[in-house]
Simulated assay, not measured.
Amino acid sequence: MSTSISTHTSLPNFVADFKSITKFRLAVSVVFSSVAGYLLGVDQINLWHIVYLALGGYAMVGASNAFNQIIEKDLDAKMDRTKSRPLPAGRMSKSYAFIIASVLTLIGIYLLYIINPITAMFGAISIFIYTSLYTPLKTKTPLAVFVGAIPGAIPFMLGWVAASGNFGIEPGTLFMIQFFWQFPHFWALGWWLYDDYKKGGFFMLPTGKRDKGTAVQIVLYTIWTIIVSLIPVLNITGDFYITPISAIIIFALGIYMLSKAIKLYKTKQVKASKQLMLASVTYITLIQIVYVADKYVRSWMEI
């Protein structure tokens, strides 16, 4: 099969492959986090800034994922869940993918720069860490997850930076929340897809195995995630704070996620890791909604 640009003369095929190489669902979740952070940090909503943030954020994440798939083409071909991606399946050449990744990088930096330079800077840092540090470390050490948690935590705080134009305790708190959350999330994913990751030579679990040590760390980091998520109720994080009612809701969501982590610890079953992974996605999505809703409900009640 040809791997040239001509393979994409069919628009539906190009769209499908573009969504695959940019990891559409992951990119959309990142955009959601960024917009949530923006709504938390902004005093007066600028719809154009939301558009630039959404498109620029998607471009930056898409670029990171495209560079990642270029580097891991041969490894992706070994794993069941990735072997049908455009590059390992032969539907796209590395040079074509590189063009897409490069163009997305330029578009992303430009759109974020329109909002403010510091937003563009953090976007560029995210691409660099994900591509140059996290990606090569994945086949060398479980510490790759710690490195990958840095660019993974940037989107939530990026939204606040886009709204305020500066980095302070508020976006730092948002970063910390999403940073800690990623460990139970990705370790649950690593447990679930352990056999497939092993085919590609990826080290995703902290001990390298589906064992008690990994399960204990998943539980501990789930607890830390809940704790840092509740810090804003103490009113010590600047302009980012929540009411006790919202804190109770977040705590309840956290207990649900923790119950799944404890279940994994007790059973060591793949099914339990999948349930925890899905619970973690639900948790981060809903607490972001709760944070935003808390702010605007308080504002409405003060009118």
Score class of each variant (00 low, 15 high):
V31A: 04
W48Q: 02
L193S: 06
G254I: 01
F14M: 11
S164A: 13
L106K: 14
W187F: 02
F180H: 00
L253P: 13
I127N: 07
I71W: 10
V61I: 10
P184C: 08
Q69V: 04
A293M: 06
T9P: 07
I21P: 14
F180Y: 07
I71N: 02
I118W: 14
T282F: 15
A247Y: 10
N235C: 12
V30N: 08
T7H: 12
D80S: 10
Y38H: 04
Q69T: 03
R298K: 11
A54I: 05
V15L: 15
I50H: 08
S229W: 09
Y58V: 08
Y96D: 13
T237P: 15
I284K: 01
I245G: 01
I118H: 08
H185W: 12
F98N: 02
I231K: 00
K209Y: 03
K209A: 09
L104F: 14
I177H: 02
A261F: 15
T173P: 14
V233D: 11
Y256P: 10
Q288N: 12
K212S: 01
T22V: 00
E170L: 09
K212F: 08
L111G: 05
I100E: 07
I287K: 03
S246T: 14
F122L: 15
L230A: 08
A149F: 01
F167Y: 11
G90R: 04
F183S: 02
T207G: 12
V103D: 08
S280P: 13
T141Y: 13
F175G: 03
H185E: 13
A54N: 00
A247S: 07
Y241Q: 07
